[in-house]
Simulated scan of single mutants.
Amino acid sequence: MIQNYSRIALPLKISFLVFSMVLNCMGVIILQLSATNISYTNLGFLEAFKDLPIAIFSLFAATFINRFGSKTSLIFSLLIVAICCILLPFVGGFWFFKLWFAIMGICFSVAKISVYGILRNNILQEIPLAKVMSSVEASFMIGIFVVNMGFGWLISSTYSEYWKFGFWIISLLALANVFLLMKTEVLPDAEHSQIFYFSEITGFFNRKYFLFFLIIFSIVFIEQNFNSWLPSFYKKHLNVNSFFALQASAFLALFSYVGRIVTARIIQHFSLARYFIGCTIAILLMLFLFQTLVTNGYLQITLFIFPLIGLFLSPLYPVISSQSINHIRKAEIHLFTSLIVIFSSLGSSVGSVIMSYVFQFEYGGYYALFISGAVIVLLLLSFIYFRSYVSKKENNY
């Protein structure tokens, strides 16, 4: 099965790279639009225009993908992204950013469900699937790094007024990947119903899946807070310029990429549960260290220490997702993935709205660290309970 993956690895990674750049340019846009007297509260709700369409459309996306197939659906979503990125520099107004992010969110819901469907159809075993998902998800982190580094350079250059044209590069990459996908052969999807029935979801209405989706919600809540609001935190509370503020997110993403690549290489040597718990505890310790340094005035050191948290944060999502997806029947994979996307988008949206209100206060950035720490504790407790509950019900976990 890994041989099948080797043929499709590149287009799947590029797909995640493209969507990572369009979804995680939020930090850049918040930084740029906040300088035009748009309040942090309004900018916080901008995240909701990206995430709520993901949540609302995901169930319908599963039906769309069942009808047209994972590969065709992925190609379609990339084409829409390319067109929207071409149009962005020519349309002004805050309203267009809302519409643009809504379209990006809908396309991402289709793309992510398609990518997960392709992976599940080609890889059947838990550890190989965890390795592959960590590798593919790692490209998502590279997208965050590239978009922050690229736009950081553009914004700080003499061509800063043309920063929107940076999206044309994303458009070209999306179009190139469409061509690559058309040349790539993948195993066909399992047979699915082309009509969505609400009753199909009821199988996921139990304690085990509630805990799983709570874990997913918490992970994305933390990830999105760090990725979207870290530049504003660095600029507002650590008094660095826009370029270095964006580099904070860029290097957070770089270390997140390293974390997922390392996970893909070593995961077969560890229990998935112990690896997850170890990473979560490491995040708590690093957050405590960061808060201690900030409180005691060691601001310069924190500029370099905080991005290291990505080493331990990034493996959580692919590890828990691959473990659960491996136990889902192929016929249910699109529906299950759509539920993962829904709770991921809710975590992202709720997190950003909360942070937008927190950042309105003079010392809001420091409170943001405590909020993130509380959610990490919730994540750890939820996972421990999840493992305990599942171990009693299913001996194969």
Results as ranks from 00 to 15, higher is better:
residue 244 F to Q: 11
residue 198 F to H: 09
residue 228 S to F: 14
residue 93 G to R: 03
residue 189 D to N: 05
residue 391 S to M: 13
residue 24 N to V: 08
residue 11 P to D: 01
residue 37 N to C: 15
residue 275 Y to V: 02
residue 74 L to V: 02
residue 385 Y to T: 15
residue 9 A to L: 02
residue 197 Y to T: 06
residue 392 K to W: 05
residue 384 I to G: 13
residue 33 L to V: 10
residue 25 C to L: 11
residue 35 A to L: 15
residue 198 F to I: 10
residue 355 M to C: 08
residue 159 Y to P: 00
residue 217 F to T: 06
residue 309 I to R: 04
residue 374 A to R: 08
residue 370 F to Q: 09
residue 315 P to N: 02
residue 173 L to V: 11
residue 249 S to L: 15
residue 111 A to R: 00
residue 26 M to L: 09
residue 148 N to K: 00
residue 289 L to V: 04
residue 61 A to S: 08
residue 235 K to M: 11
residue 376 I to H: 11
residue 31 L to W: 03
residue 257 Y to P: 05
residue 96 F to V: 13
residue 131 K to C: 03
residue 161 E to S: 05
residue 5 Y to G: 06
residue 279 C to T: 04
residue 335 L to M: 12
residue 365 G to H: 11
residue 288 F to Y: 07
residue 217 F to W: 10
residue 244 F to G: 03
residue 356 S to E: 07
residue 365 G to L: 06
residue 174 A to H: 05
residue 188 P to V: 08
residue 318 P to A: 01
residue 64 F to P: 00
residue 198 F to P: 08
residue 235 K to F: 10
residue 256 S to F: 13
residue 146 V to Q: 00
residue 50 K to M: 15
residue 224 Q to E: 14
residue 124 L to A: 14
residue 361 F to M: 15
residue 343 F to N: 08
residue 262 V to W: 01
residue 343 F to E: 06
residue 171 S to H: 07
residue 180 L to V: 01
residue 228 S to C: 11
residue 84 C to V: 01
residue 378 L to A: 14
residue 44 G to D: 13
residue 72 T to H: 00
residue 35 A to P: 06
residue 68 F to A: 06
residue 271 S to M: 04
residue 69 G to C: 05
residue 20 S to D: 07
